[in-house]
């Protein structure tokens, strides 16, 4: 890639997104990642930048209900999408069952990876399909702790709360409180 020079044009485009149920339209530099759009243009700073390379999961959001690394998603490529961030998980004052379970199971310490963990878990619970540790590749396996560990392994937590994260997600999964 050539380095930019003085006088280079900055290309912008209009992006329309539904974020946490609210329609938002804005004009951004076409290089803007979805994460930077959320954090810097919409003031939704709950989603975190841990590596900006899709390797830590702190920026995980739901795009059309599926989990995605917002730092690797170009905003312009998701025009028209429905995006849910950690700010959109709770229903008013009622915490999402995962948020409630994270409190009960002490599933975090510093809280920096937590928004990504929550969005990742919310997406994971509805995903289905086999994972790298599934024996039978033909159906939707039960979400055992082993499956959850594998499916949550894209979300790093340096405080080391993983065991409690898996317990919290397991509790929500087995309670059937997810749609």
């Amino acid at each position: 890639m050539t380095a930019p020079e003085a006088g280079d044009q900055v290309h912008t485009a209009t992006v329309t997104l539904t974020v946490n149920g609210e329609s938002r339209a804005l004009e951004v530099d076409t290089r803007t990642s979805l994460l930077d759009l959320l954090r810097e243009h919409l003031g939704l700073t709950g989603s975190k930048k841990g590596c900006d390379h899709g390797q830590c999961g702190a920026c995980t959001v739901l795009i059309g209900g599926r989990r995605a690394n917002a730092c690797l998603a170009l905003a312009v490529a998701h025009d028209g999408a429905e995006v849910t961030t950690v700010e959109g998980l709770a229903d008013g004052d009622a915490l999402h069952p995962l948020q409630d379970a994270f409190i009960r199971y002490d599933a975090f310490q510093c809280g920096y990876c937590t928004p990504g963990q929550l969005c990742s878990a919310a997406g994971m619970l509805t995903e289905g399909g086999p994972s790298a540790v599934t024996a039978d590749l033909t159906g939707d396996p039960a979400l055992t702790p082993g499956e959850i560990r594998e499916r949550m392994s894209g979300n790093l937590c340096r405080c080391g709360a993983y065991v409690n994260i898996v317990r919290a997600v397991t509790a929500v999964s087995t309670a059937g409180t997810e749609p």
Partner: peptide
Amino acid sequence: DPRLLTGHGRY
């Protein structure tokens, strides 16, 4: 916890 869980921590 509630602050950090809802995306309202201030880093």
